[in-house]
Structures are given as C-alpha cells and as structure tokens.
C-alpha cells in the first residue's frame, strides 16, 4: 500500500502564520493576550476597565472579532483603547491571518500589550493559535458553575481563567470552589481570578498579572 505517513498538524498553515506573528511580537516586546469566552461574559467590559487602569502607563491596543457590527471596537475606543474590529461574517473564531491583516490595517505603532478579543464562543477559538503569549478564558457567574468540564478544550488551554461578574455572586447559585477545582483538574497550573468591573474586585491582580507577564517577556523582573 502506498502511504504518506509523516504525521502533520492539520492546522499547520495557521500554526505557521501564528509562529510568524509570535516572532514579530517577540522582537517588538509586545505581550499578546487572546481573550475567549461565551458571548456576554464580559470580555469587552473587562478591556474597558483594563484600559482605564493601564492606558496611562502602558501602550495598549485591541483587535476584536465579532460576526457583525463595530460595536465592541466603538466601545473600546470610547474607553481610550485603540481598537480594530474584525467582522468575520459568520466565522466562529479568529485565525492568525485575520490578526495579521488587522494589524497591518490598524497601524497601532509600538505596543506594550495587544489584546485580542476573540469571537464569543467557548469551543472553536480554542483550536487556533494567534501568536499570543497566553489564552485567557472568562466565565461569568451567571453562566453557571458546570462549564469547565463541559468545555474542556478551552479550559485545558487557557493559562488564566477569570470568573467575572463576581458582584452578582449573592444572587446566583455559583460555587466558586467547584469551578476552581474543575479548572485546575483540566489545567493544574491555571491562575484563577475572581473579578468584577462593577466593584473592581480582582482588577488590580489582573493588571499585576499582565504587568509581570510583560516584564517576564522582556526579561525584566517585575516589581510589585
């Protein structure tokens, strides 16, 4: 039988495009974070709050993917975060080539941190590398505490998990410790943070995490 048996990654083309982006971000010293969650978990709200905290001290920008509309980019720009919207026209995730094209069009200039707000979806974006340093997953307390084991792909790949809308915890049945346990079963070293953009809980820890990841990437020891 005639076969070709060199095992290859099916998404080799995306991986190659992502590797090029990763090299480019490494040369520029830009930390890149891919944010993934269901629609409505608070990715844009988190970035608005993050922009308010970091925009004065760090050069930050965002590429945001949605199936339709410029709404998220408009919100982020209004919060002082230079942003470029990608409208996928139906595609459920961003690919590395989308990021490359959006970067070329956006002309952000030198950046400390680039946020990539992925299309709201806990499934498809997990498979696609975008040149990021790490993926973070957001899970809002109103979505229910059974999600990590239901979506093991993304929860095993994201090195940071944010439990968002923590100010609503008194009103919903959401067992934080159960979620923490499920997340760390899928990814033992995951950082799990409880956050709220309403009372700002956890936002300082989130910003510290970004600052120290940026310092680490640039070979600088972060100071607290």
């Amino acid at each position: 039988m005639l076969t070709t048996e060199a095992r290859q990654k099916i998404l080799a083309e995306n991986e190659a495009a992502a590797a090029e982006l990763r090299e480019r971000f490494a040369r520029a010293g830009t930390l890149v974070v891919d944010l993934i969650s269901s629609p409505g978990s608070g990715k844009t709200a988190l970035l608005e709050a993050t922009a308010r905290k970091l925009a004065g001290s760090l050069r930050i920008a965002c590429i945001v993917g949605d199936i339709a509309t410029e709404r998220d980019a408009d919100r982020l720009r209004a919060a002082g975060l230079p942003s470029r919207q990608i409208t996928t026209g139906g595609a459920c995730h961003l690919e590395a080539r989308n990021v490359r094209d959006a970067l070329a069009a956006a002309r952000f200039g030198p950046l400390d941190i680039l946020f990539i707000e992925n299309v709201g979806n806990l499934v498809c974006p997990a498979s696609f590398a975008l040149g990021e340093d790490f993926k973070i997953v957001l899970l809002s307390v109103t979505e229910g505490h059974d999600k990590p084991f239901k979506y093991p792909g993304i929860f095993s790949r994201a090195s940071v998990a944010l439990i968002t809308k923590s100010d609503l915890l008194p009103y919903v049945a959401f067992d934080v410790e159960r979620v923490r346990g499920e997340i760390t079963t899928l990814r033992p070293n995951a950082r799990v943070l409880l956050t709220s953009v309403v009372d700002e809980k956890g936002l300082e820890s989130w910003c510290d995490l970004l600052r120290s990841a940026l310092g680490e990437k640039r070979g600088v020891v972060a100071t607290a």
């Binding site: 076969t3 070709t4 048996e5 099916i10």
Partner: peptide, 20 residues
Amino acid sequence: DPLRVEGGDELDLVEIEYAN
C-alpha cells in the same frame, strides 16, 4: 489525590493512503 490530564489534544493528519 488530584489527577492530571494527558493527551487528547490531537488534531493531526496521520496518513494519506493512495491507490494506483
């Protein structure tokens, strides 16, 4: 004890089988 997860992240082309 806590468990760890191994494998399961494959998304690979394994083999192309040709006929003459």
